[in-house]
Design a protein around this nucleic acid. Structure first.
Lengths: 141, 141
DNA sequence: GCTGGATGCTCAGCAGGCTGAGGAACGAGG
DNA sequence: CCTCGTTCCTCAGCCTGCTGAGCATCCAGC
């Protein structure tokens, strides 16, 4: 009960994620990004996308993504503007500063995961989990 | 970039954890517990433990555990009292209600992880990650 | 004894998830 | 047209992580 060995797998998953996220966040701090911000910046790609589109891709709720984007905008990493063609949408695009940051940050991100005996197997298993748990909640992403 | 397949492993880990946690929380809601509360309740065992002790075991900060315990107390799942032997400590113990809830909740927790091709391998790999990422941050847990 | 470091806790405040409620715009159908 | 359902977004509020600051207590060493 005291040791992680005896924990249920779900709890192990959450804990591992949190620990890795922390290491990751520490590095990102040096370039002035949070991990959620990096994901959003990454998903943006070259063109502009709507917030709900980003949210679906990132597997988070629209409200969560809206706040992340708002923070990125406040720091000058992205711009937001109403879509002229569909006034419900807000189009988000990277600024040059955002693009520059993204490039630095991506190099840091890959270093955050501690070395593990079989990285490919870990990836494959996590992918299985994501796929099967995304069902319904984030359709057609 | 759009699909999880192309994500870095750390991001996959976080996403998988969040999705599983969500499924888990949904079930726990039916018995009136949050996932953090369940962990604390579980780690308590039969006897009383101090908050910092619980925090170390759960791999969270003392402040986080304090708030979780405070919530459990508010709902009548645990009791808190100053340690007579060391007045800095707060001793936390399960109430009978808390113990009853725990038993129900543990059955639910195990169902939350979606079936995966090699559960044992997933466990083993996650355990590696937790072990190597706990270093320094949560000594001698 | 007293002082000073270590330890346990609380308070305040931030970021990132979530839900629920409600407003504005689009679009299909009567 | 106009209505009604859907979609996109915002606002408010909760829970869980985190940090930093500050307080009380203990204990070792002088």
């Amino acid at each position: 009960m005291e040791s992680p060995q005896d924990w249920p797998t779900g709890r192990l998953l959450s804990t591992a994620a949190r620990l890795v996220e922390h290491a990751w966040a520490e590095r990102l701090e040096t370039v002035g990004l949070t991990h959620a911000g990096l994901i959003a910046l990454h998903l943006l790609g070259e063109g502009a996308r709507s917030q709900s589109d980003l949210a679906r891709s990132a597997r988070v709720q629209l409200q969560t993504m809206a706040r992340t984007v708002e923070r990125l905008e406040r720091h000058g990493h992205v711009t937001r503007q109403r879509d002229a063609a569909d006034a419900r949408r807000v189009l988000v695009a990277r600024t040059p500063e955002g693009a520059a940051l993204l490039e630095q940050a991506q190099r840091l991100e890959s270093e955050a995961l501690p070395p593990v005996s079989d990285p490919a197997a870990l990836r494959a298993l996590l992918l299985e989990v994501v796929r099967s748990a995304s069902g319904g909640r984030f359709p057609a992403s």
